[in-house]
Design a protein around this nucleic acid. Structure first.
Length: 419
RNA sequence: GCGAUCGUAGCUCAAUUGGUUAGAGCGCCGGUUUGUGGUACCGGAGGUUGCGGGUUCAAUUCCCGUCGAUCGCCCCA
């Protein structure tokens, strides 16, 4: 009886070939830029106690109430695969002594999990790069974090496709006053709102502001904006952020209707949005979350962070070029196999990329060498071996010369340097 | 969770109004060349047409279900 191959789980992906090049290009650029800003690399678990996410993101948010992968482990403890990084990093800050490094500038990346309906640019296991500054109340932290994001997008060559939308949600006093005013305003237009927005009014009234329903949009345009409810401190904080961004040369656009889906956000909120990915236009987003630490039982710890979807960034960049192989080793016949392995090893230990086909006649192996884009082919046959030599063929010019086996590595090293 | 479109070799796609043995390009393996690539020519392997059921003399084609992908809503990165 034929065994059926198990199929991949809905919303997961296998990444290889060009996709993998793109994916890794994004990760590598992030690692490169993050060092320029003094952000330290951190690793945290893929799963946590469910409480880490349930308390911090807000029990009523969609992510917590219907999108988490939660399960009991063998001891009955309730665990959840991380749906984002911020809560786990904050938990680590509180439980692993990271407070001694405060303000803690952290970068990480890896898989995150959300049970959503998959689409292009939306997966159940997807990958984020993430940057956080934990333990800094200063607006300079906001500026630095946004500068990092901006420079990353620039170095990925997608800055021209992307706009930074910036808003403030105020401190908790501002936010509560604004929220109350919004509820009152939308209550007055309740019958004209879309059914979805009517539901949002009780669950997440700020979300009505970025509704896509055309009728909702008209109503939202006249809704009270946060500016009228900002405390003096909140207003001057936002001012410091925007003037700092101008000084750093980061282009931004005020979007008074920009809100965040998770409950922990305060003050600065932002999204880098592209028009090239359809409904999944948000490519990098975050904000300040001064209240999160207390929600996890810690002291008041001001913090700010962002996350970006690696898959979404990878779709926007130009196809990266992979470094071509330098050398192909081509043994002919049984006798040549081990000498070929020996040369291959010496080349690689000398820092020269080299590869060898394991099968096929000479023509096939030359074709393979050609497809690798190598500069040199080293041909090892009986005639060469008898003289302790190998034939080195330039794949560019077609010239061939016999070179003693013990001089091949040096010869190729010097020729590669001259290029 | 809701609505819509789609699903044919490893990949990208063909297959008249339902009609014989489901084709091509690329890739893979081999040959023209018993030791020479990027070109050309020849040959080969590889398919239960996503899966299950139904209508029909006959289904890749029509109907239902299911799984998956894509698009929009929702949500979000």
């Amino acid at each position: 009886m034929k065994i059926k191959t198990p199929q991949p789980i809905r919303g997961t992906q296998d990444i290889f070939g060009e996709e993998s090049l793109r994916f890794n290009h994004v990760v590598n650029k992030f690692d490169e830029i993050r060092k320029l800003y003094g952000f330290k690399r951190a690793e945290i678990p893929v799963f946590e106690s469910t409480a880490v996410f349930a308390r911090s993101l807000g029990e009523t948010t969609d992510v917590v109430s219907k999108e988490m992968y939660s399960f009991p482990d063998r001891s009955g403890e309730q665990l959840t695969l991380r749906p984002e990084f911020t809560a786990g990093l904050t938990r680590a800050y509180l439980t692993s002594g990271w407070q001694q490094y405060s303000p803690c500038k952290i970068a990480t990346h890896g898989p995150v999990f959300r049970y959503e309906r998959p689409q292009k640019g939306r997966y159940r296991q997807f990958h984020q790069i993430d940057a956080e500054v934990i333990g800094a109340a200063e607006p300079e932290a906001d500026v630095e974090l946004l500068s990092l994001a901006d420079q990353l997008l620039e170095s990925l060559g997608i800055k021209q496709h992307v706009t930074l939308h910036l808003n403030t949600l105020g401190d908790s006093a501002s936010r509560e006053a604004w929220r109350a005013a919004l509820i009152e305003y939308f209550q007055g237009h309740f019958d004209s709102l879309s059914q979805e927005s009517q539901e949002r009014l009780t669950r997440n009234p700020l979300r009505i502001l970025d509704s896509k329903d055309p009728n909702d949009k008209i109503i939202a345009e006249k809704a009270p904006i946060i500016d009228d409810y900002l405390t003096e401190e909140a207003a001057s904080f936002f001012k410091a952020v925007t003037t700092g961004l101008d000084a750093a040369g980061v282009a931004w656009m005020r979007d008074p209707r920009l809100v965040r889906g998770l409950d922990y956000y305060r003050h600065t909120a932002f999204e880098f949005i592209t028009d090239q990915l359809g409904a999944q236009g948000t490519v990098l987003a975050g904000g300040r979350y001064d209240g999160l630490s207390e929600a996890l039982g810690g002291n008041l710890t001001p913090a700010i962070g962002w996350a970006a979807g690696i898959e979404r960034l990878a779709m926007l960049i130009d196809e990266p070029k992979e470094d071509a192989m330098n050398v192909a080793v081509i043994p002919l016949g049984e006798e040549a196999k081990n000498p070929a392995i020996s040369i291959l090893s010496k080349l690689r230990h000398a820092g020269i990329s080299a590869d060898m086909s394991w099968r096929g006649n000479m023509k096939r192996r030359m074709q393979k060498a050609n497809s690798w884009g190598v500069r040199y082919a080293i041909i090892l046959g009986d005639e060469e071996l008898a003289r302790n030599e190998a034939t080195v063929r330039s794949m560019v010019t077609g010239e061939q010369q016999a070179i003693a086996l013990d001089q091949i590595v040096d010869q190729i090293l010097s020729e590669l340097r001259n290029k």
